[in-house]
Design a binder for these strands. Structure first.
Lengths: 148, 148
DNA sequence: TTGATATTGAAAACCTTTTTCAATTATAGC
DNA sequence: GCTATAATTGAAAAAGGTTTTCAATATCAA
């Protein structure tokens, strides 16, 4: 949308990032990166493993875990807490963004522009807490699932 | 020890609720209810099990799981997602409330009065989602941990 | 091309949660 | 207060999901 056409896609960006950080770019990692970078929804390790084997036969589940760990460490991927399933992984947010998740198909979209400063101040005053960060996720039906 | 409290405390309320729903009030359940109802922080099954055995020797971990399941079903307890640990249990909110969690000691407090309607409408317009619910948690330092 | 070493997958180990099952216990009805 | 009966219990086993171990393999710098 706001991305120039010649901009490198996430797939290339992530592989470059791995490489630049001294990690090796291997066939299993390419398969995993391709799947997670292009997924519209957060995926669990097992889903990634299943999809990944369609692309790279010998892929091991262990490698999925290890690769996700590295992608998360590099800030490329982030763990998402669904009501069911707390080890789901999604491309990371761009700065300060939050998620809207479709309760039907799982589709995830980031949005920005939350302004909860007034709220955090009020809570800080009332509870005595010093607020450092917040988690915000919206749930609902995406435009596709809404029309069914 | 049992709570000699004349006001309707959570402990009594929860046991009554179990009883009224046709569930039996047993020694293991009393131990579990006492711990969870009085805890200032969300607890995991293993923590509850450990603390519970101090009160009821023969307590089994399985019973902790089963009792939490019933307390949740009755709306007395709710599951809390911490960054680490997604199976933590805490006394349920009173209506529409959200949590502030202390990142140091885990202390949990509910607050109300969030107004994110404007936000959900904006997000709905931008993304095409039909927003049904939201999930909001604040993190920070409680007044005790702040002064250290 | 080669060599050092990061990475791999299989298997085993772990840890948490669920199921199974015989024994126990709370409670309603007498 | 008893008794019958059905819910509840804890131990053990099973089931998941995640992590560790380790020898074999593949990447990448030189």
């Amino acid at each position: 949308m706001t991305k120039p056409d010649n901009a490198p896609n996430l797939y290339d960006q992530w592989l470059d990032s791995l490489s630049e950080s001294g990690y090796r770019v291997t066939a299993p990692r390419r398969a995993i990166v391709e799947i997670v970078a292009n997924s519209p929804r957060a995926l669990g390790p097992l889903e990634i493993y299943d999809q990944g084997r369609a692309e790279y036969r010998g892929l091991g589940l262990v490698t999925v875990y290890r690769t996700l760990e590295k992608l998360e460490e590099l800030g490329l991927v982030q763990r998402v807490h669904h009501p069911q399933g707390c080890h789901m992984y999604l491309r990371a947010a761009d700065g300060h963004e939050h998620l809207v998740l479709c309760t039907s198909c799982g589709k995830a979209e980031y949005f920005s522009g939350d302004n909860i400063d007034k709220l955090t101040h009020a809570v800080a005053r009332k509870t005595g807490f010093e607020i450092r960060e917040h988690w915000l996720q919206l749930f609902g039906l995406c435009s596709d699932c809404k029309n069914k």
